[in-house]
Structures are given as C-alpha cells and as structure tokens.
Design a binder for these strands. Structure first.
Lengths: 232, 232
DNA sequence: GTATTTTTGTGCTATAAAACATATTTATAC
DNA sequence: GTATAAATATGTTTTATAGCACAAAAATAC
C-alpha cells in the first residue's frame, strides 16, 4: 500500500477567518502569505522571542508550552489545523509567552504581523473573530488553572485524555485517541512526573478504562473517565 | 475627623475605552448606562449565570474566582477600578465562567450586553481595545497556571503578594500593600490551605521579608520576595 | 456588655506525589 | 547487525502539603 499522499489545502480553505475578509483582502492575502514546514519535535516559536507573523496551522498538531520553576515544562494547550499561533503576542505587542513545538510533521501558513495588524485595524468582523477566539482561550486557560491545581493525579490524567479526545477526535475504530503523545508529553500536559503518568496510565488500563498499545490509547469506558476527571 | 467622602467619577473618566468612542456613542452611553453598588463580600456575578451587562469597575476592588474539585475555591484574578467584568462571557456567548465578589464596597457602571456588542461590531478601535485586554489576560492566566502548579508554597505566596502589590500599589508609607485580604483569600489566591497561608505569612514576617498587622501587610524586603517567587 | 460566630494561629498526623534508583524495552545511529 | 540512546516500566524512599484538632483573638450580633 503506498503511503497516503497529503494534498495541502489552500489557505482559503484552512483559514477560518477567510469568510470575513473583503474581496481586496482576499486578493492581497492570496499572494501575501508564506508557507512553512516543520518536522516532528521541531520548534515553531520560542518563549521570549519577538513574534513576526501570524501562523495558521494547515496540517499537523502542535503543543504550546511554558517553562516554569525548576525548568519544568507545562503544556498549556494543544492546537489542531485551522487554529492560530503567535497572534496573542502580536496583539499584546509583547514577546512570545509560549513555546510551540510540532508533535507531528506540520505545515503552516504565515501572514506578517504588519499585515495581520493592518487587517485587524480595518476589518471589524475580522477583529471580532479574534476577539471571540481569545475569549474562548481565556476561559479554557482559567479552567485549566483550576483543574491542574485542584485535581489529584488520576483526575488530571483523565482530564488530559478527554481534552485530547475532544480536540483531536477518535480514529475510525471510534476508540483510539487521534493523537499519539509520549508519556512525557502526557505528563507535561497533566502536571505530573513521567513515572506517575506511566503508572496512572497502567492503572487505568488495569481498570479497563482504557487500553494502551505503545502511544496509541483507546478509550474503553469514557463514562468512567469523565467521572474520574470530574471528581478530581 | 469626618469620614472621607468619595466623589464618584463619571463614566467618561472611569471607562478606559471612552477615548475611542465616536461622538454619537459617547452621547448615547452617557445616558444608556447603569450604576450598581455592592457591599463588602457581596456577589457581583456568579459562575454559570447568563451575563446581561458589561460592568466597569468605578470604585472598589473585586476578586474573580472559580470553584474546582471538592468545592475548593481558586481566585483567578483580582480587579481594580477601570477594569471590566463579564465581557469575556458576553463575547464568547457563554455563561459566566467565573464568580466575582466585592472585596470592599464597590461601585460599578453597567452597559447592556446588546449595546456593548453593538459597539464592538461597529467601532473597530473599540473592538481592538478589548482584543488587547483579552490578549493581556490570556498571557496572565497561562502564567498563573504554570506558577500555581509548579512553585512551592513559599513561592506561590510570595508571587501572590507581589501580584497584589503590582495591581493595587502601595500606600503612602511606600510599604503597605494597597488591599487588605483575609488569610483565606490569600490562600485561595495562592492555591494553598488557610493554615498554610497563615504559617507561611508568619515565616516571612520572622525572616523580616514582610511585617503583618492584622490584614495589613508591609513589604520590607521586596528583593527577597521576588527571589522567593522566582525560585519557586 | 455578654454571647456567638468568624478569623487567626499552632501543633500533629496522614498522605499524595515527587524524587530516586534501576530494569527493560524500543528507537536511532552507524 | 551491533552499539547507543531514548522511552517506558516499576519498586522504594522522601517530602511537601493537606487534613485535622484545638486554642486564642477578633469581629459581629443581640
């Protein structure tokens, strides 16, 4: 069987804001955009750097993380195609507050900060779209703060698995979570050590809540997983 | 000495967005706004309720919190005059994701959700202002997630004290933090139990980093406090 | 002014989770 | 194909912090 060939979608099919652009803006952006590729584990942007462009994830999956005390890494969110990278720092006129790394081979459309800001300043519907996006992101970030600080290990890991399921969906078997993360990434997402992620994952498997095959995780009993996540 | 009389500033002096309004919008809002008062510890909005108005904090201080696992409360941010309440949920068209409570007597100007959205949709500069505000808030929320999950108790309390100092400033003596919180609030802000907040506060006082007189906290050695916060 | 509730303070115990140690398996390099 | 590195797995020890109990002080109610 030949390896499946990905046909890259054009920017107007990837960018969720395309419908609110004016005719002129569409014409302009059809040319005035860039294209970047990143291999697995490649760094897309780094915390502390000055942002130079809005990035639109066209293909692939990325993790967004921050370094905290003792150089411990915390994954603050995971992005999928159609979502944006780097726009928060551009809007706030700050340095990047997060590091973004490709979890699998990733293709990105880019729009320069200047062009991005220019459209934000001139197209009200476009501006409103990003306003909505930030409003959603803020609620999620606040919720994550509370979940990560108050839930116990089992609750945090259950929550992370559900977050991944909700974000990336399930494969054709309707059970396998649509992203394969290392135990270390799972740990950084759930605010625990790698050994505890491994242990807790094994416990969940023993309790027939999930099955684990390498990095493939099948959700067997979602109800139970939600209960564990909810109770903390 | 007679009790100091607060003269309430008019909305156009409180609202930080007033300068980007059009002449017509100013005329309109000069009448189409409401005024609310809340006593100490009164609930201004509740998690799960439908938001009905943008609130602009005119006088007073409020805490913004969420309930997590085991009904434990987490304060996610603290607001001061000029800052906004309830706009995130209106923009995202969601129920309130947070509860807001007055820490001291508080006066609030209100603008109905409909009027707020209408201006957002028509005045690009106004929309951009709130875009910026959310961009700042998101970075702070992400930073808080990492700090609260990774720092130890001393680091978390030191961080909370600095956050309060940076947000509310110092009194005339250039040492007393400009807001008086209960030990319980300090604990909910720093993600720890009340006893641990009390204990750690006492330790800081013993180490001559702060002095404590009831709820008044004087910062004696800010350098040391920043070091403790940074190291975690 | 006294009673009652709330807040603050302190010691002790229990426990969740990190830290550490060490295999074992899997992936990658040459 | 072998060597080396990285990821996964598991047992043991240590520790930070929650949980609990109770006392003292302060605030509030009557």
């Amino acid at each position: 069987m030949p390896k499946r060939q990905f046909i890259l979608k054009p920017i107007y099919e990837v960018a969720t804001f395309w419908d609110v652009l004016t005719h002129d803006e569409r014409n302009f952006l059809s040319n005035a955009h860039g294209l970047l590729h990143f291999g697995k584990n490649e760094v897309i942007q780094s915390e502390g750097e000055r942002p130079t462009q809005l990035m639109i994830l066209a293909e692939g999956k990325v993790k967004v993380s921050k370094i905290g005390a003792n150089n411990r890494l915390q994954i603050v969110r995971m992005l999928k195609p159609g979502e944006h990278i780097g726009f928060r720092a551009i809007i706030a006129n700050e340095l990047n507050s997060t590091t973004v790394v490709a979890v699998e081979p990733t293709t990105i459309y880019t729009i320069s900060s200047e062009n991005f800001i220019s459209i934000l300043r001139n197209n009200n519907a476009f501006c409103y779209r990003f306003l909505e996006e930030l409003a959603f992101d803020l609620a999620e970030s606040d919720a994550r703060t509370v979940n990560l600080t108050q839930k116990h290990i089992r609750g945090r890991l259950a929550e992370a698995l559900l977050l991944l399921k909700d974000n990336y969906g399930l494969e054709a078997d309707k059970a396998t979570i649509g992203i394969y993360l290392s135990r270390e990434d799972l740990a950084n997402l759930s605010n625990m050590t790698t050994s505890n992620a491994i242990r807790t994952l094994a416990n969940f498997a023993n309790e027939d809540i999930i099955t684990v095959d390498g990095r493939k995780i099948k959700i067997i009993d979602e109800e139970k997983l939600r209960r564990i996540s909810k109770l903390g």
